[in-house]
Each structure stands twice: as C-alpha cells, then as structure tokens.
Design a protein around this nucleic acid. Structure first.
Lengths: 204, 204
DNA sequence: TAGTTACCTATACCATGGTATAGGTCTGCC
DNA sequence: GGCAGACCTATACCATGGTATAGGTAACTA
C-alpha cells in the first residue's frame, strides 16, 4: 500500500484529492499545507513513496522547493502539481529531476494513472505539456543556426564570450549576438541555464 | 585486435609509443600529427577503438579538441595524453567525458595497462592525478561551508546572484562573496563551470 | 581572554554578459 | 532584380558577475 503525501495550501483542493485517492485506490494519503510542513512530516515517516508538491505554496519559492525535496529525500518520488504552471515550468521541473508533473486540469482518472505511473518508476509528463515542448524545445535544437550550435557547445564547457570568440575566429560582439539569440531560442535567461539545458539534452 | 590512433605532433614521441604498443601487445596502431589529421583519418576507418590525443597539439585548443573528438565519434574511446597537464586539466578532461588521461610520465607497462583498461570500458585516471584530486576536489565538496553549498545549489538551477540573495534572505553582495569563494574552492573560473561541475558530481 | 572560523555587510572597481540598433556581406530563391 | 535569411561587425548602454579591502557579529576553542 503506497504512501502518498500531498502538500497544497488550498485545503479544499488538497483534502478532496486526498479523499479521492483513498477511496479509489489502495493509497494511504497524508497531507500538509506547506512545504515546510511536508518536509517535517516526512522526517517522522520515512516510508513516503510519493510526495506531491503544489507549485504555488508557502515555502516553494518557484522550483527551489522542489529541489530541496528531491535532495532531502532521494528515495522518495517527487511530483510537482500546479494549476497555472505553463510548459516551461513543467519542463524545467522535469529537467531538475521531478518524477512527475501534474496539472490540475488532469481528470481524476488520469491522476490515478499518473500516480501509478510514477510509483512504478516511470516519469510522468502529460502529453499536452510534453508535445508542445517537443515543438518548442527539441525543435529548438534544430532552430539553432550552425554558429549558434557551435557557440552553445563552447558555452557547455563554461567558456567566456572572449574565449569562444577566439576559438571560432570571430569578434566577441558576434559571440554575444549568437548567445543572445540562442538564449531566446532555448527559452532560458542566461548562459548557465543554457549550458545546463544543453547538457540535459545531450546537445554537447 | 584493437585499433588505436595516436595523435601527437612530436614525431619521436608518437612513433616510439606506436612502435612499442605494436610490439608489446596485439594492438594495431595508427598515428596522426594533428587533431585535424586524426579526425580525417578516422573518417576513412570507422573502426578505431581508442583515440589518444596529445593535449598540446595543433588544433586542440585546450580541451575543445577533446570535446570535438568525443562528439564526432561517440563509439570511440578517447583518451587525453599530456606531458605537462596538471591535475586540474586531467580532471576537467575526465569531467568532459574523456575515457582516460595519460600523463607522459607513465611507465610503458602502465601505459599498456591503461589502454587495456580503457578498451575494456573502464575510465582511467592515474592514481597520482586521482588521489590529489580527491584531496582537492571531492574534498572540495566538504570544504564548502553550508552557505556556499546552498549558494551552489541555486547556481545549479541557473539563478542569478540577485535571485539567490532573495531566496536565502541575504544581500546580493554576500552571495557574490559566497560565489567567489566557492569558485576558488572548486577550482573553476565562473559560475557556469561551477554549475556544470556540481551537476557532474551530483552535488545538486 | 584571545584567537579562529563562518557568516554577513559595505563600498568600490573593473570585467563580463546581455540588449538594442544599425548596417554590411553573402547565398539562395522567386 | 529584389527579397529573405544567416552571418559578421560596430557602437553604445546597462545589468550582472567577480575581485579587493575592510569591518562587524556570533560561536567555538585553546
């Protein structure tokens, strides 16, 4: 009987989901209203199989809370749940190691599926979020021009614009241009994120 | 009979090593004087099992050449060889995916061992380089103070100093201090490299 | 008590990174 | 010919990142 801990600050949402899960399937469900409370609860019970975190909830601080949870309890699957989060958040969460992403628009039966999926060791990202991601993300790779790809490759070694310019035999300004365009195409906001993303997707 | 390609611009070094390898063990050895030449040679023969690259050699451009080789021929093991490279280079090479690091101070019999090691699928880093690395690198992890670790974790998500400051509830200047200290302790020169290194070592 | 270490802050400086605008070359295409 | 897209460069501006120096607090230790 899998143990699930749901953390969400909306009592209604949290408790109805919990109740639903308990009636429909053989889940043992606990709840917490904040990230803090969830983590504290986990200290006592170390047999939580799945932790579901609301994206908007005291203590989450964007994806930082997710990260904390993942780090603190490596044996526990952690899924992010959100009503408003867009594709980018979903994908960044997955890239950071989340085991699942649960939009609140999911139907209850799909939720059950998702949870079973995650508990079985798979990672779950709904098609609606995954598919456009492929169009806006994997596509991103091919969107990159040749020079931008070369620039990205060097970014991935942690080189500075100046070094990249030297290596490619062009001016530093030009590198800056490539970097700027490449950041936009990848949908990230600085070179470190670009490097991380590229590593994640084995682009270098 | 494993195929080995040695690329080094010093004819003497290259050819004597090649000859030695051929007499001592059942290696088929080819040679090239530059990275360019090596990569061209590999196009023709796609059955090279091990590519040994001299760190100082036309076309290498630091570790960029290593990266190019690794990327171009994912099926081929690539080892970096160097007479002068220090621990940091060795470890950065390994972190970038090199299958082995061969200091020229290695004894010929150790070289054979190293090559066999790499060919068998292991990754080879001589103890002299690995041990101090543990003292200066894995140790690095524990060298980090708590705040520095927290800062590093956020660096790994690609956050800016300002964001990190907000998340930790401290001033941006303080974050800069932590970042600066942490870069020094990790032996890297900017935040992107720090993030990459941390990811590599699963520190976040 | 004095010394040490981690931590936080301040001020200041310079290097690097990222944005904006504009204009040039070259290639391929209608 | 005219158009579009990839590429390169220039100038300039502002934000961010990294370094240096100095000083303050708290906790632990010889």
């Amino acid at each position: 009987m899998p143990n699930i801990l749901i953390a969400d600050d909306h009592d209604l949402v949290r408790d109805t989901i919990a109740a639903y899960l308990e009636t429909v399937d053989d889940f043992k469900v606990m709840t917490a209203p904040t990230l803090q409370a969830a983590l504290e609860k986990m200290e006592g019970i170390d047999s939580i199989d799945l932790l579901i975190l609301d994206y908007h909830m005291p203590g989450m601080n964007g994806l930082e809370g997710l990260n904390r949870a993942l780090k603190s309890y490596p044996a526990t699957k952690v899924a992010l749940m959100s009503g408003v989060a867009n594709r980018e958040v979903a994908n960044r969460a997955m890239a950071q190691g989340a085991h699942g992403f649960i939009p609140k628009s999911l139907t209850p039966s799909s939720l059950i599926n998702a949870i079973r999926f995650v508990l079985s060791g798979e990672r779950y990202l709904p098609f609606d979020f995954a598919a456009p991601e492929t169009a806006a993300t994997a596509d991103n790779t091919s969107n990159l021009s040749e020079r931008e790809m070369q620039t990205l490759e060097q970014l991935c070694i942690g080189l500075s614009n100046k070094e990249i310019a030297r290596n490619l035999g062009i001016q530093e300004v030009t590198v800056k241009l490539h970097v700027k365009n490449l950041l936009a195409k990848l949908g990230v906001s600085n070179r470190t994120q670009a490097a991380l993303l590229a590593k994640e997707r084995h682009l270098c």
